[in-house]
Design a protein around this nucleic acid. Structure first.
Lengths: 343, 343
DNA sequence: TCTAACTATTGCATCGATGCAATTTGTCGC
DNA sequence: GCGACAAATTGCATCGATGCAATAGTTAGA
């Protein structure tokens, strides 16, 4: 019942273990008849190389760890899907770890797990990692930060230009004539890189238009999920002077906000224009469909995998890479109305 | 730069490798001072056991493969998240493979990968696997079917009672007084177990109510995604005699259908009541919120992991287990209207 | 025919850990 | 003080593969 090994194949074919290994690995100097004979034995026994043994010997696992906050957040689900695809295409498997917002767990995964499990590299969409954490890392496995930026850290980083994207989204709303433009999900803690950058973009758009920012319309949220968007929107609509537009820092926030606004009888976008961020599929099927910032997720996945592959395979610890992938603003009904939708 | 091994620790502590191993594994017969001394060396060097080596020696990897069609389908994303959580809690890591609807790839993953990579077990939400495939599997790693049933196969199977669930959903619509109740996602191919079972439940509900089934209202779809729901709904609404209710075999189908219905100006549920299946989070935040069959996903995940753990750890190849986890019908606005929503 | 120069094949050590059995150390009883 | 016995520690083989260097086998040239 136990799986056949090189030895079994060698015995059956009447050759040495090493020769079988050579055949398996397509080593050049094996005569044709020998190759055929060994291959026959391999097929007979249904031999498959044992990767654990191979990896132990070669010191690598061809496994990349992917650490994300939660898999059921559509943005991550979509991204993870693409990353797995990219990795598979290059012969790597992906092991996923969820932090569930648990900072301690995140740190442990990044710091300890790689050398223990033998990950060749770690792609992490960080939650609360600090530059100091990264400094004190001993593991030789390269680490790549995806999305969230960690200021002053020396790790490779792949992301879109959050400031520009947020500025464009806000500018779009300003361009529509809105003036009371709320922002949901703004910076609460300066270590939250994404919020900081998007908040900056939001402010820049007002500055560029020569308009003042109403700080009271900037609502921070604990996370970027639907219920937080719903709660924030409720608070905004309870005001005496509610906003006429909202830029939400994630599509989920926007969908939560949309639900609240609709249930209060507001018309979107007439009474309230809405822009999200991430371009998750839900936003393409909501009613109304959601205007959003669409990161090039395929590009993010490709860059992430390619960058970490390079680090793994050529291992130079050169200067950290800072890669920016493109994004675009997708205009849909939640800001334009039934009229025009670009995608 | 290279990670410290047992040997390094042993050298530093001035003891044998074996003793260090004993300390690491909490072997009972190690004196306290010895334990302290070795532990100090371990901490000094930052030693972590190399799992590849350990696994090779012990013949198991503590890795479970999870094969799903696609990660960005919310139902799978939610389920995968729970499964990873359950597995982590029991010391297993999860390696995810996506089949992307590629049947060949699915077969290969199930048949070949386990013994190659050394998976201890495989949880698969099958796409097009046949009983014959499972028969001819050589790998000793246990396999567990999640959700989709493969008739006449001898593998463990964890799922909800699809027939009953579909019957209840349909009965709910009948109970609301609807009579032209369409079904989107019905059986097209008898090998598609899920569709077969849900279709059966749909028919049973009509039979139980003494009503005839209008076959022309039963629409098959290639998959269970939003766009298929949208397409099916479009076709239904283009009829001279459109339905007054629709039971969609997935929430995504329902959301796609909802989008189409709303954009045509129909009122939900007044003109068209809608019931989905899966209870994905989107349905709780759509407008209107979606009535749906809610499988106990946490229960599914727990049963799946526990069942395969048992197989892995006690390895008896007893009779295959058939585990049914609970479900309930969650009533929301898409069938009840603004009035009552149970959850 | 004999040696040089390859080439195909093989044997041995090794990756880092654990299983098992042997060995050393320590404790007691008499 | 010595043998017996249990407890703590250690050595060796091993998991299944690959790296490296040696060996056997072939061909060619003189």
């Amino acid at each position: 019942m136990t799986a056949p090994t090189l030895r079994d194949v060698a015995e059956r074919a009447g050759v040495s273990i090493r020769t079988v290994s050579n055949v398996v690995n397509g080593y050049a100097k094996v005569t044709e008849p020998m190759k055929v004979r060994v291959q026959a034995a391999i097929d007979d026994l249904g031999y498959r190389p044992n990767l654990m043994a191979r990896n132990l010997k070669q010191g690598r696992s061809r496994i990349i760890a992917l650490v994300v906050p939660a898999l059921d957040v559509p943005y991550f689900a979509e991204l993870v899907r693409l990353i797995i695809g990219e990795a598979q295409a290059h012969g790597y498997a992906v092991l996923i770890d969820q932090t569930d917002g648990d900072v301690e767990r995140e740190r442990e995964l990044i710091m300890e797990a790689p050398q223990a499990v033998g990950f060749d590299g770690v792609i992490v969409s960080p939650l609360a990692l600090t530059a100091a954490d990264l400094e004190s890392r001993r593991s030789p496995a390269p680490i790549l930060l995806l999305g969230e930026k960690i200021f002053d850290s020396a790790a490779d980083h792949v992301a879109i230009d959050n400031v520009t994207a947020a500025r464009e989204a806000t500018a779009h709303l300003i361009g529509l004539g809105r003036r009371r433009i709320a922002a949901i999900g703004v910076e609460q803690d300066p270590s939250d890189g994404t919020a900081v950058l998007r908040t900056r973009g939001y402010r820049e758009a007002f500055a560029a238009a020569g308009l003042p920012v109403d700080e009271s319309l900037m609502v921070p949220t604990p996370h970027y999920e639907r219920r937080h968007g719903a709660a924030a929107m409720t608070a905004l609509l309870d005001r005496a002077d509610p906003p006429d537009a909202v830029f939400c820092f994630s599509d989920l926030l926007a969908l939560g906000a949309m639900r609240v606004a609709l249930s209060r009888g507001l018309r979107i976008p007439e009474d309230l224009a809405l822009v999200g961020f991430d371009d998750i599929e839900d936003g393409r099927y909501s009613t109304p469909t959601l205007t959003t910032v669409a990161p090039d997720k395929q590009g993010l996945a490709r860059s992430a995998v390619e960058t970490i592959r390079t680090r793994i395979e050529s291992g130079q610890d050169a200067t950290p890479l800072e890669i920016t992938t493109p994004h675009r603003l997708v205009l849909r009904e939640s800001s334009l109305g039934g009229a025009g939708a670009t995608a």
